[in-house]
């Protein structure tokens, strides 16, 4: 197991390096620069700025100095949020997105698994149809439609909840964004869970368990749940990265100071170091969570063993 983890870490280094290299050159070749302004800048001032950020040097030198800075944990200065460094901004925005993302994750997994099992158990009954209708609705209705409707109802008409803001993540501020984000994710998980659970319930060992007269509860929890979780585990890793790194739409609608806003502003304003910093973070998280999923497989599936 230890050698497996070690191998995954070693594999991650070249993967990340390739990712950084591609991103570095892609954003540099995008038209426009972080210093493009509507009003033209005196050439002397522009030259000074470029010198300050090392943009006057050849591209390969900039690349090298970025990589060496990165090795020391320096993500560079932000060009959009000029008073901050990228590391600082990520250090304040990431916990916000993490908090929302983890809540969404927990709610969706618990609710989605539960609903999926229920639908599988009562396959082709009204319960199944109701759950699946809501799941599909949750997936297909985009959050930029649902979120404003939630605000309209709960914040403006009923005045129960704030219309946005963060305020250090008080529950009132988290409720609507979490609901708006979790509804699609829950539906997605419920559908996967239903499908795999139906497959498992048709297997011979379940029939054997039933024949032995085990109660449904025991069959479900002890025998069916684990194999049915297999397909889910493989999608949860990348999905986890998706939810904890922030949703652009939700953060914009609710005014949440998370990673999604940094992404958008970074890309639109050619904030090179911001875009690269976020790419590296998401890349590293994706690699890490995929590794965790692989390790989790070993626990869930007795056929897989790492030695």
């Amino acid at each position: 197991m230890l050698s497996f983890i070690l191998r995954r870490i070693l594999e991650a280094i070249p993967t990340l390096l390739i990712l950084i290299t591609i991103s570095f050159f892609l954003i540099r070749f995008a038209p426009g620069s972080p210093f493009t302004t509507e009003r033209k800048m005196p050439p002397e001032v522009l030259a000074n700025i470029e010198a300050k950020y090392g943009f006057d040097k050849p591209l390969y030198e900039q690349y090298w100095s970025y990589i060496s800075g990165l090795a020391q944990g320096d993500l560079g200065p932000s060009f959009v949020y000029k008073d901050y460094s990228v590391s600082e901004l990520v250090a304040t925005a990431f916990p916000v997105s993490l908090k929302i993302g983890l809540t969404v994750f927990v709610v969706s997994v618990v609710l989605g698994v539960f609903l999926g099992i229920l639908a599988a158990l009562y396959q082709n009954t009204w319960a199944d149809y109701t759950i699946m209708s809501f799941s599909v609705a949750g997936i297909v209705i985009p959050s930029y439609v649902v979120a404003p409707l939630l605000i309209l109802l709960f914040a403006i008409y009923l005045k129960w909840l704030p219309a946005g803001g963060w305020n250090d993540g008080g529950w009132q501020y988290m409720l609507l964004p979490v609901v708006a984000m979790a509804k699609g994710f829950t539906g997605y998980i419920a559908r996967i869970m239903r499908g795999s659970m139906i497959e498992v319930l048709n297997q011979d060992f379940i029939r054997t368990a039933r024949a032995k007269g085990l109660p449904t509860r025991t069959i479900m929890l002890r025998h069916a749940l684990r194999p049915a979780m297999m397909p889910l585990a493989s999608v949860l890793g990348p999905a986890m990265v998706g939810v904890i790194t922030g949703s652009v739409v939700i953060e914009n609608i609710f005014g949440i100071p998370g990673m999604g806003q940094l992404f958008v502003n970074g890309a639109l304003n050619r904030d090179y170091s911001m875009v690269l910093g976020l790419t590296i973070l998401v890349g590293a998280l994706t690699i890490a969570f995929n590794a965790i999923v692989d390790i989790a497989y070993a626990y869930i599936d007795p056929k897989i063993r790492y030695s």
């Binding site: 993490l98 305020n167 008080g170």
Partner: peptide, 17 residues
């Protein structure tokens, strides 16, 4: 992890509304 993140935030302040 969730508890951990919650613990990192300051206690909720008054609502902006």
């Amino acid at each position: 992890m969730l508890l951990f993140v919650s613990a990192c935030s300051d206690p909720g302040t008054q609502m902006q509304g």
